[in-house]
């Protein structure tokens, strides 16, 4: 399965990935990270097409995208 891993260490909660996800499957979470930012969460991992746009638009390089079989 395709997966999107968002690192809580690097993410600063700018929400660019949420805005540009073509499948609209990212949304801002409600729990603050240790650094005090809201991190996005993947709401429906089944729908991810592993296009990598979230990672391209992430200024902090916090997102890792993997394409499954």
């Amino acid at each position: 399965m395709n997966s999107v891993q968002i690192s809580a260490l690097f993410c600063k909660g700018c929400a660019y990935c949420v805005k540009f996800c073509p499948k609209q499957i990212l949304e801002m979470g409600t729990v603050r990270s240790r650094k005090g930012h809201f991190n996005p969460v993947v709401t429906d991992p089944e729908k991810c097409i592993a296009c990598g746009i979230c990672a391209t638009m992430c200024p902090e390089a916090a997102i890792e995208v993997t394409k499954g079989e």
């Binding site: 600063k12 700018c14 390089a61 499954g68």
Partner: peptide, 22 residues
Amino acid sequence: MAKVYTRPQSLLPVPSGFCPGC
């Protein structure tokens, strides 16, 4: 399992000093 995007090796594995969204 193929990586579509990973963090560049040229960056140190620390958070940047820039503001959120910069």
